[in-house]
Computed example of a mutant assay.
Amino acid sequence: MEAWVLFRLAIACGLIAATVAVQASFMSAGLGVFRRLEEDRRDFLLRYPTVTTVIWIVYLIVPIALDVVLWATFYYLSRALPDFEDALYFSTVTFTTVGYGDIVLGRDWRQVATFEAVNGWIIFGWATALMMAVIQRLHFRGND
């Protein structure tokens, strides 16, 4: 029985690695575009910092949504939850650490869900840091 626990935890670590890769890819691409805009279209960024901020935040929500879908797909394919709609709802509630508790995993899978919550906490912290980096650049260093 311990082998199954370790196997499930290994899967959870793999999912965390995958979500970090998704986030890192989006971060790298987004920051690359932002740097090019600073070089080529600085006037736009200075004139429309709110528009830029909204676009950046919406952009950073995309990999978070992909992360949630990745976890939901795992729950569905592993049959930890009966259908994809429940899996997506459970994953969203768990990744955001809201944890309503109206849908729960069985004993065999519940430890995996704690890793998703930690994963969400890390990803949201990372996304928040990226949001603040751009906001500071736009609003406090725009006159450099």
Rank of each mutant, 00 (worst) to 15 (best):
E2V: 04
A3Q: 15
W4E: 15
L9S: 08
I11G: 02
A12C: 08
A12M: 10
G14R: 09
L15P: 01
A24F: 12
S25V: 07
S25H: 03
F26K: 04
S28G: 08
S28F: 14
S28K: 12
A29N: 02
F34W: 05
F34S: 07
F34R: 14
R41S: 10
F44Q: 06
L45P: 03
Y48C: 02
T52A: 12
V58D: 03
L60Y: 07
I61C: 12
V62R: 09
I64W: 05
A65K: 04
V68K: 05
L70Q: 03
L70C: 12
W71R: 03
T73K: 04
T73N: 14
L77G: 00
A80E: 08
A80M: 11
D83V: 06
E85R: 13
A87V: 02
F90G: 10
T92D: 04
T94E: 07
T96H: 03
V98R: 12
V98Y: 08
G99S: 12
D102H: 06
D102Q: 11
V104F: 03
L105M: 09
Q111K: 02
V112W: 14
V112Q: 03
T114I: 14
F115L: 15
A117Q: 13
L130F: 09
V134W: 01
V134D: 04
V134A: 09
I135M: 10
Q136S: 07
Q136D: 14
H139Q: 12
F140H: 08
D144N: 11
D144T: 03
D144A: 14
